Amino acid sequence: MVAEFNVYCAICCCPLGGSCEVGSTNPWHLKLRRARVARRTYSRRTGSLYYETDEEEEDEKEERLSKMPWLRETAEADVDEDTASVNSDDYDHSYDPDVISPEDLSWLNTVFALGIAHRKPGPRTYMLCDCYYDDRNRVYIHDTDPDDSDEQSRYFAYGVSDLTDPPVFPVHWECIVLLSRAIGISSVASIQKNVLYDVMLDLADFSCLNLSYGDITGPDQDWQCIPGEEYSVVCPTLEFDMGHQIIVDFEAGLFESQKPLELGNKVIKDPFTNMPYDVIYLILQYLPGDSIMALNRASWAILTLTRSNSFWKNRLAGDMVWLWELQQYFESPESSRVRNYKSLYLWLDKKTQPLYGLTGTFMGIANRRRIWGPCTELAERYHRKLHGSLQ
């Protein structure tokens, strides 16, 4: 007998409906869950191996907490207390109720199916229809003829089917909205469904597409609600008040800027000194922000060339196209408050990293940043296929 698997959104690789479990608010369950997240966070950030069955020695625990003091309170679960009677599902296979609520998960229930209408006379008809997922890769289309039989309205996702009909690709509505932005069109209605369908068909795998969906471990035979990965199921298109966050978070954390040191005359050898600016600029275009910061520490010439606000403002616009609230902020009078675009870049880059253990205001934006990766690849393939079909 072949094992049964759930399938996931073709764009974000998250569950199609009610597969997420928000955990118990029992104080002991909260303590155990957060201690587990703290240990996993530490092991991931230090690059060390961590096994759930390991018994952590006190000296190891103290070393971990000394390096991550902000996690001390949540990590100090009493390992001597008897946990035999505690069901691990209550704390290790459910999300933290103080981090995410059932209402935050409601967007996962709005699912559409991209596919080819089967058993219809005439030429192929491509559809993007409201649907519901009925577990184990079965999808039922809402927008069908009332006289249609159950078999006619039923489709199978990703080609896992006992039928000869082409598969459909389920997507969350919010994810297809995000994809339309990545493609560069004004609305979902403008998507060429036949082109996008062919793109997804080329990438079809068993339960999702053959894309990199980021560092998440939820998608499995069944969806796993991993504590610490709550951000991955937060709606990526939630409204975000960028101006407010810049005032209460970014500006509040800034120190009085100091006059930059002039150390050029102390540089003994710098290979970038004699390199034309245009060439350096082209090189920097291909580097992420953290790599530029590393070059700043290694090269005085690079540091000098990247001091200007205009450089970092351009980087913000080019590297964070998924953060459209920032672009809107730049167009508002409020943007005159920003004096240091380099600091703003570093702050946003850190705040929006889709990392295990992330909580707080930026969870939706971090999930958007994660999903923007597969959106970008789909958009590139979409344009190549679209332009190829027009030639």
Rank of each mutant, 00 (worst) to 15 (best):
A3C: 08
E4R: 11
F5T: 08
C9Y: 01
G23M: 06
W28K: 15
K31Y: 00
L49K: 04
E52T: 04
E52R: 11
D54Q: 13
L65M: 09
L65T: 01
R72K: 13
T74P: 01
E76A: 09
E76M: 12
D78M: 04
V79A: 10
S85A: 05
D98N: 13
D104I: 02
W107M: 05
A113M: 15
L114E: 04
R119E: 15
K120Y: 09
G122Q: 15
R124E: 09
M127Y: 08
D130N: 01
Y132Q: 14
V139C: 04
Y140T: 09
D148N: 15
R154C: 04
R154S: 05
F156W: 09
F156Q: 05
Y158Q: 06
V160M: 05
C175T: 13
L179M: 08
V188A: 13
I191Y: 10
V195N: 09
D198K: 14
M200C: 01
L209P: 05
S212Q: 08
V233W: 01
C235T: 00
F240I: 13
D241L: 13
F250H: 09
F250R: 10
S257G: 12
F272Y: 14
Y281G: 11
M293C: 08
L295P: 02
I302E: 08
W322F: 15
L326P: 04
Y329H: 12
E331C: 07
E334L: 04
L344P: 01
W347L: 05
K350C: 06
Q353F: 05
L355K: 03
Y356A: 03
L358H: 01
G364W: 00
I365Q: 04
N367R: 00
R369F: 01
A379W: 03
R381Y: 03
K385E: 10
G388S: 14
Q391A: 10
